[in-house]
Each structure stands twice: as structure tokens, then as C-alpha cells.
Amino acid sequence: MIVAFVATISFVLIHLAPGDPFSAALENPNVTEELRDDLRRQYGLDRPLTEQFGRYAAQLAHADLGWSFSHERPVRAVLASALPNTLLLMGVALFGSFALGILVALVQVARRGSVIDRLLDGLSLVLSSMPDFWFAILALLAFTYWLPIFPVGGAVDAVMHDSMGFGGRVVDRLRHLALPAFTLTILAAAGVARFQRAALIDVLPADYIRTARLKGLTEGAILRRHALRNALLPIISLIGLAFPALLTGAVFIEKVFAWPGMGLTLVSAIGSRDYPLVIGSVIVGSIMVTVGSLIADLLYAYADPRIRGA
């Protein structure tokens, strides 16, 4: 149902946008209007929109996402090569951002009101307000040009990768993953830290915390064993929300770091008006978000017996 709705909406929206897949070569005088018309005919883009949609829906019913104009390959094949890269990037960023965000929140709450707390609070506010692409460009300049410790972009070294041994290839992949994952992690961690800090502060006045203090537990132990466990429940909900946010962030991050994932594929597809690829990317993206929300719901139910019992 969701897929059908998303496919319909994205089909209509992308076809409403001016231009078509064959408008890119406008300033090449050899690519004539006649030639563009021939290509439109060849790909059925000269047919009425309702007919095009009917044909696309029939394809989709057979799990066929169509043919990518810009890659000259089936959309399924294009997405199959991009999806693992995005899942890897998002997986690392998801884990990293929650681990880092929670750690920062614990430090802040443990030193509540101190200079460190205020500094981290300000930093997380700045980072969570910062546009993804801008931070990505700054990171790119800082760590590939001014302090060249990471490669500029791509998933692997396009020149050397094939001549490396297995270990070298793994290291090469990790080096290329580091900067985009770091960028996405830092930006997402800032939001997690703010959220987690607020959640921790909410549970601190609770009776069980007071009881723990009366039992003589240290503040660190109270935070880790009692406050954090209870303050994690809202964070699990945040995982569901983080999926679409990370996917959106990945669109910009992947473009800046030339990371060959779903985001880069989608941006390129929109620019070249590759209708089937745009719709296919949106469908896969929506499935990812749905699955992410489902996982968050299951985790929530697992963590909170009240939900399981309801």
C-alpha cells in the first residue's frame, strides 16, 4: 500500500518537473530537437501521462522497476549496487551517532552546569543546526586538503584498489568510509546528545534515583545503571525517526564525498530526469524508512514490558 502510494506520488511529481531525460545536451548543436523527439518516442515518453503511468504500474506489479535512462541498465541493478553502500554508511553512522550522542549526554549530565556541559551543549546546538552539505564540504577541505589524512571521495581508491591484497582492500574501504561516516555521525550525534541529555535530566528526580542515592551509589553508577536504562526508551523511538533523517543526510553527504550510494543515485537521477530511477529510489527509500520504524517499534516493545503487555 505504502509502495503504491509512494510510487504514484513520486511519478506525478517528477513528471511535473520541467525537462526530460533528453534535455541535458541542449548546448550540443548536434543533438537536435528531432533527435530528442526520436528518443522520447523510443522510450515511450511521447505517450499521454496516464498511459505512461499505467505501463509503469503494470511493470511495478511484476516487481519490475523499469529501465534507467542515465545508466542504461535496469533500475533494479542500479539500486542493487548502490543500496549496500548506503546501508553500510547509514549503519555505521546510526551506531556511531547513538553511541557518541549517549556518551556525550552522560558526560554533560554528570557535569551538569559546568563549563564542559555548557560547551558541549553549545557545540551540539551548532552542529545540529548546521546544514549537512556545508559541514561535509568543510570536513572535505579540512581532512583531504588542509590536513590530507583521508581520501577525497568514492567507496574505494579507483586507481589502486584492484592491485591491493585482501587486507589492503579492507583498509582502503575503511579509509574511504571514514570521512563520510564521521560527518554523518557527528551531525546525527549532536541531535541524539541533546535528546538524551533532556531524557536523563527528566528521570533524575525520580524516586528510584533518590533511592539509589540513599543506598550510597556513586553518581556515575546511578547514571549508568539506573538513569540511563530508563532514559533510553525515548531514544529507541528516536532510532525510528533517525532513519529518514540519516537517509536525507546521506543524499548530501554521498554527493559531496562521491559515495556511490542511494543518495548519490537519487540526486543524479533527479538532475538527469531519469524518471524510473527517481521513482525506484524513492520506493526503496520509503521501504527503508518503514523497516527502520518497524525495527524501532520492535526494540521499544522489547525494552518496555508495558508495551509488550498492551
Binding site: I137, L140, L141, T144, Y145, P148, V152, G153, G154, A158, V159, K255, V256, F257, A258, L264, V267, S268
Partner: peptide, 15 residues
């Protein structure tokens, strides 16, 4: 070596 972002493509050369 293809970098869809223009700034990334320049940086690849400068670095």
C-alpha cells in the same frame, strides 16, 4: 575518476 560534485572533483586534483 568521477566525482559528481564539482568541488569534490577540484579537491581531488588539488590534493
Amino acid at each position: 575518476s568521477i566525482s559528481p560534485d564539482f568541488n569534490t572533483a577540484v579537491t581531488r586534483f588539488l590534493s
